[in-house]
Computed example of a mutant assay.
Amino acid sequence: MRERWGAVGVLAAALFVVNAVARLVIKFGFPDDDTAADRVTLAMFLVIGLILAVLAFRWGSDRPTGRLAGDLAAAIGVALALTLFVGPLLVGKSPFADGAGTFFAQIWLYLAATAAGVLVGYLTLTALGRDFRSRQLKRYAELKATKPRKVVRR
């Protein structure tokens, strides 16, 4: 159990660190350039999506879908909360400094990026037939094919 939640915690921390690094790069590297800030933000969302795609691909091969979804949802939820409430404090802003529209836009963009990453990773895994369920069905089919037929006497 500790190993399971440890991995989820590390994932949440990694997602938050990606966001924190992007915020710090924007603050110190491009304080007045909105175009560069948008590019850094886009790169941050791509990195987050890529991390989740790789982990969905990796974790999906040895975990049932329900457990995989729960683990990823927990990590994304914790990382999202940290990103919304702690991330702005790192650069000296209030979480609600830019208004409710920006606050909720951050939520939707973050959820869209994470959902896209998870879907790409898991659908790729499923298409290759390497997900937990496909492997389970393959083992079952092999087991049934190797049993000798029973001779029925009449």
Results as ranks from 00 to 15, higher is better:
Val78Gln: 09
Gly121Ile: 04
Val10Thr: 11
Ala79Leu: 07
Gln106Glu: 14
Ala74Val: 09
Phe28Met: 06
Gly60Phe: 04
Val10Gly: 01
Thr41Pro: 03
Gln106Tyr: 03
Thr83Glu: 11
Val54Gly: 09
Leu80Gln: 02
Val54Ser: 06
Thr65Gly: 11
Lys93Ala: 13
Ile107Thr: 01
Ala14Gln: 10
Ala97Asp: 14
Leu55Thr: 05
Thr83Ala: 15
Ala112Leu: 14
Phe30Val: 09
Thr102Gly: 12
Phe45Lys: 14
Thr65Lys: 13
Phe104Ile: 10
Leu11Val: 12
Gly6Ser: 04
Phe103Asn: 13
Ala97Ser: 14
Val118His: 00
Leu55Lys: 06
Asp71Ile: 02
Asn19Tyr: 11
Gly92Ile: 10
Leu42Trp: 02
Gln106Phe: 10
Ala73Met: 01
Ala75Phe: 00
Thr65Cys: 07
Phe103Met: 13
Lys27Gln: 15
Pro88Ile: 10
Lys93Phe: 15
Val8Thr: 07
Arg58Ile: 11
Ala79Ser: 12
Val120Leu: 14
Gly60Cys: 05
Gly70Gln: 00
Arg63Met: 06
Pro31Ser: 03
Val10Ser: 01
Thr35Trp: 03
Leu15Asn: 03
Ile26Asn: 13
Gly99Lys: 09
Ala116Gly: 13
Val40Met: 09
Ala36Glu: 09
Ala56Gln: 13
Phe28Val: 06
Leu68Pro: 04
Val40Gly: 10
Gly77Ser: 04
Tyr110Trp: 15
Asp38Trp: 05
Ala53Trp: 04
Gly101Ser: 15
Trp108Ile: 15
Gly49Leu: 01
Ala12Asp: 08
Ala36His: 04
Gly101Glu: 14
Lys93Arg: 15
Leu109Tyr: 07
Val10Leu: 07
Ser61His: 13
Leu15Phe: 12
Ala97Tyr: 12
Val10His: 00
Trp59Ala: 15
Arg67Pro: 01
Phe30Ile: 04
Leu82Ile: 03
Pro88Leu: 04
Ala74Pro: 04
Gly70Pro: 00
Thr102Pro: 00
Arg63Pro: 06
Ala13Leu: 14
Leu46Pro: 01
Ala105Arg: 12
Arg39Trp: 13
Ala56His: 02
Leu24Lys: 07
Phe104Thr: 08
Phe57Gln: 10
Ala116Glu: 08
Gly49Thr: 02
Ala22Thr: 05
Ala56Asn: 09
Leu15Pro: 09
Phe85Thr: 11
Asp38Met: 11
Val40Glu: 07
Thr35Gly: 06
Ala74Leu: 07
Thr41Cys: 00
Val8Tyr: 00
Leu24Arg: 09
Gly66Pro: 01
Thr102Met: 08
Phe104Glu: 08
Ala69Tyr: 02
Tyr110Arg: 13
Ala7Ser: 13
Phe45Val: 08
Ala100Asp: 07
Phe85Glu: 07
Leu52Ser: 05
Val78Ser: 14
Ser94Met: 07
